[in-house]
């Protein structure tokens, strides 16, 4: 991506066939992109108590919560159509799946309203107040 202002194209036609999917935002970086046995290892071991979910990943305790996309927004998972393209070429991505809520996980700390992701959901409402059409 350096030095070259390439264009990113989103193939919106793929939105229609994209499946709704469960999304987990992990508090770690996994050096891997591709399919994984999420339902076998993760989903099946999640414990759901009142305000908080718990699970462990690679022996670390995670505490998480479900978070909905802001009203009127849809989450998109995008995938490179040509993953081996050089960064000199324009980039084309397709919508591989969509989500309207996700589960985000903190490492050992309970989910709370100060979590970056939770706070970032304030923006659409604020943006609407700042940039929205002014009614008479």
């Amino acid at each position: 991506m350096s030095g070259h202002s390439s264009v990113t194209l989103v193939q919106w036609s793929t939105l229609g066939e994209a499946q709704r999917t469960a999304v987990h935002l992990m508090p770690c970086e996994i050096e891997y992109n591709g399919p994984a046995q999420v339902s076998q290892y993760l989903t099946s071991t999640i414990k759901d108590r009142k305000q908080e979910k718990t699970v462990s990943f690679r022996g670390r305790g995670l505490r998480g919560a479900e978070l909905s996309c802001p009203q009127g927004y849809t989450g998109l998972v995008l995938k490179d159509v040509n993953p081996n393209a050089s960064d000199q070429e324009d980039r084309t991505v397709k919508v591989s799946s969509t989500f309207d809520k996700l589960t985000y996980w903190n490492l050992e700390t309970p989910p709370n309203s100060d979590d970056t992701l939770v706070m970032s959901m304030d923006w659409p409402e604020l943006a609407e107040a700042i940039h929205g059409a002014v009614e008479d």
């Binding site: 970086e29 050096e31 022996g59 490492l107």
Partner: peptide, 25 residues
């Protein structure tokens, strides 16, 4: 699975060798 003690060096070594790297904050 949770049955294994992830903190044991035996398990750690195998995951380092054969698993994908995972980085925590």
């Amino acid at each position: 699975p949770q049955f294994i003690r992830f903190s044991w060096s035996t398990a750690k070594r195998l995951m380092d060798d054969k698993g994908f790297a995972v980085y925590w904050e």
